[in-house]
C-alpha cells in the first residue's frame, strides 16, 4: 500500500464496532427502561448508567486516536454534497458520543441522584441540584437520543450505499475484517 491509508487502523476499527454495539444497546435500553415499571426497570437503568460511562471513556479514547491517525480520504469522485454530509454527520456523531453520556451524568447530578454504576462504583456529581438545569438536561437527553438514533440509521444507510451501490471502498475502510476482494488485491 502506498501513499495514504485505504483503511482505518485496526484499533480504530475495533473501537468503532465495540462502540457501535454499546451505543445501540444504550439507545434500546434507554427507550426500553422508560417503557416499563417491572423490576427489570432497575436492571436496565443500572446497565444504562454503567454503559454510558463506558461509552464516554471509549469516545474520548477514540477521539484521541482519530486525532493521532486521521481517516482515509473519501473517494475523489464522491459528489461534494455527499462529502459535506459525511463530514458533518461525523462531527455530529462524535459530539453525541461524548455529549450524551455527559448530559446523562449532569442530568442525574442536577436531580441530586447518586450516580451508582454496576460494581458499586460511585461517580461524583458534576453539577449542583437545580430544577431548571434538570429540566433542560432531561429534555436534551430525551430529544438527542432520537436524533442520535436517526443519525445512526443514516450512517448505516450511507455505509451500505457505499458498500453495495457505489462499491468505492468506503465501507471496506471500516469493515471489521478485510473483504475477499481486498485479500485478493493484497495478494497480487
Amino acid at each position: 500500500m502506498s501513499g495514504q491509508r485505504q483503511r482505518f487502523t485496526p484499533l480504530q476499527r475495533l473501537l468503532h464496532w465495540l462502540m457501535a454495539a454499546c451505543i445501540l444497546a444504550q439507545l434500546f435500553i434507554g427507550v426500553g427502561m422508560e417503557a416499563t415499571i417491572l423490576p427489570k426497570y432497575l436492571t436496565l437503568i443500572a446497565i444504562h448508567k454503567s454503559l454510558g460511562f463506558v461509552v464516554l471513556v471509549l469516545a474520548l479514547i477514540r477521539l484521541a486516536v482519530r486525532l493521532r491517525y486521521g481517516a482515509p480520504p473519501l473517494p475523489a469522485d464522491l459528489p461534494a454534497p455527499m462529502k459535506l454530509a459525511a463530514h458533518l454527520s461525523h462531527y455530529a456523531l462524535y459530539a453525541l458520543m461524548i455529549g450524551m453520556p455527559l448530559i446523562g451524568w449532569a442530568m442525574l447530578s442536577s436531580a441530586d441522584y447518586p450516580v451508582l454504576l454496576l460494581g458499586g462504583v460511585r461517580l461524583p456529581p458534576i453539577l449542583p441540584q437545580s430544577d431548571s438545569l434538570h429540566t433542560l438536561l432531561w429534555g436534551a437527553h430525551f430529544c438527542l437520543a432520537f436524533l442520535f438514533f436517526a443519525l445512526i440509521l443514516m450512517h448505516v444507510a450511507a455505509a451500505l450505499f457505499h458498500g453495495l451501490v457505489r462499491r468505492d471502498g468506503v465501507f471496506e475502510s471500516m469493515a471489521p475484517l478485510p473483504s475477499p476482494r481486498e485479500e485478493v488485491m493484497a495478494a497480487e
Partner: peptide, 27 residues
C-alpha cells in the same frame, strides 16, 4: 436491502420504546 435494514431497525426501536404496547404500565 438498505430500505429493509433501516425500516426494520426503526421498527425494532419503536417496539423497544413500547410504542406498539400502549397498555403497558410506565412511570
Amino acid at each position: 436491502l438498505i430500505l429493509v435494514v433501516i425500516a426494520g431497525s426503526a421498527a425494532a426501536f419503536a417496539f423497544a420504546a413500547g410504542w406498539f404496547s400502549p397498555q403497558q404500565l410506565t412511570g
